[in-house]
């Protein structure tokens, strides 16, 4: 099967000599919901910039649904929709005009562009704002506007660069539902995000990039299996003066009603509950201290750092 996105040995060195990408390679399969993660300055936005032609690569190749961007970039662009990290629309244009005009840039007849504009503005809850100048929208609305604009030509591959940055939780979740819907309808989605909970909830496969190199490229399931330890926060009914004895487990008291317990791979949480029950400690609720993917992400980057210092 032809990959939705195929990146081979992609390199980028900026004029000031900074090597943003050191020959990365990965593939995204059609229909996938793919996370491209990495710390700030890792090379995510440079990669996206090259895919959508805003950054010129120094070396390597990029194909979108089998079309090499060096051979037929216009055809490749027809299949691609991009939602950038920064707002990049005219602040003085009306919402409707921004979306509809983008259809024209893709060669869509006016009537079709108008039909799709209405469809996506309605789906993204912006129809009531269609006559409003973009600068008058809230941050979340501006993000949704960029999603509507990117979907106007119904691309087969949609790339979202931190689409939910600065968006409140309720709206973030409604955007997740929307993205899952269009993914289920066949659109391949690549997502970069700093909310690892978002990547874990939405994505099936993942590539982690750090300092211009891919440090992990696998399925989220396989990656989570490699998690060696998890840390939980346990809330207690009784006020505690000191941490209860939990033999074999790393535990500490956070405050008089909260315990932090680390469970290594192979250990069971039941043993923790049994030990606490024996000491008359009642647990009222429990949660992960950090998102599981976040723990892995941090440990992977820490390993990279250690490798470097060796």
């Amino acid at each position: 099967m032809t990959a939705a996105l195929s990146i081979r040995n992609l390199q980028k060195t900026y004029d000031n000599g900074f090597q943003a990408l050191k020959g990365i390679s990965f593939e995204v399969q059609p229909g996938d919901f793919f996370a491209l993660l990495g710390p700030n300055g890792a090379g995510k936005s440079t990669t996206i910039g090259i895919i959508c032609s805003l950054v010129r690569k120094t070396g390597g190749s990029v194909s979108i649904f089998g079309i090499d961007i060096d051979k037929d970039f216009p055809a490749a662009k027809q299949m691609l929709g991009v939602v950038p990290q920064e707002f990049n629309f005219s602040q003085f244009e009306k919402v409707y005009d921004i979306v509809c005009t983008q259809g024209g840039f893709y060669g869509m007849p006016r009537s079709l562009a108008e039909e799709r504009t209405e469809k996506y503005l309605k789906q993204l809850g912006l129809w009531d704002k269609r006559s409003t100048q973009a600068r008058m929208l809230s941050g979340g609305m501006k993000r949704r506007l960029m999603i509507a604009r990117a979907l106007i030509h119904e691309p087969k591959l949609l790339i979202l660069d931190e689409p939910t940055a600065g968006v409140d939780i309720e709206l973030r979740r409604s955007m997740w539902t929307f993205l899952q819907e269009i993914n289920s309808q066949g659109t391949t989605i690549i997502l970069t995000t700093h909310y690892l909970e978002e990547a874990e909830s939405l994505c099936r496969n993942i590539a982690i990039i750090d300092k211009g190199e891919i440090v992990e490229n696998t399925s989220i399931k396989s990656l989570l299996k490699t998690l060696n330890r998890e840390t939980f926060i346990l809330d207690t009914r009784e006020a505690l003066d000191e941490c209860p004895k939990l033999q074999g487990f790393e535990g500490r008291l956070i405050d008089d009603h909260s315990l932090e317990v680390t469970v290594e791979k192979g250990q069971s949480l039941t043993e923790v509950f049994t030990a606490l029950g024996e000491q008359d400690v009642t647990i009222t609720s429990m949660r992960n201290r950090a998102n599981r993917l976040e723990e892995l992400f941090v440990s992977l980057l820490a390993e990279e750092k250690q490798e470097e210092t060796k």
């Binding site: 032609s53 805003l54 920064e86 707002f87 629309f89 005219s90 005009t101 840039f105």
Partner: peptide, 11 residues
């Protein structure tokens, strides 16, 4: 305003 990118990413 970077809206030139609307055109640059299009075909």
């Amino acid at each position: 305003q970077r809206n030139v990118e609307e055109l640059l990413v299009s075909p």
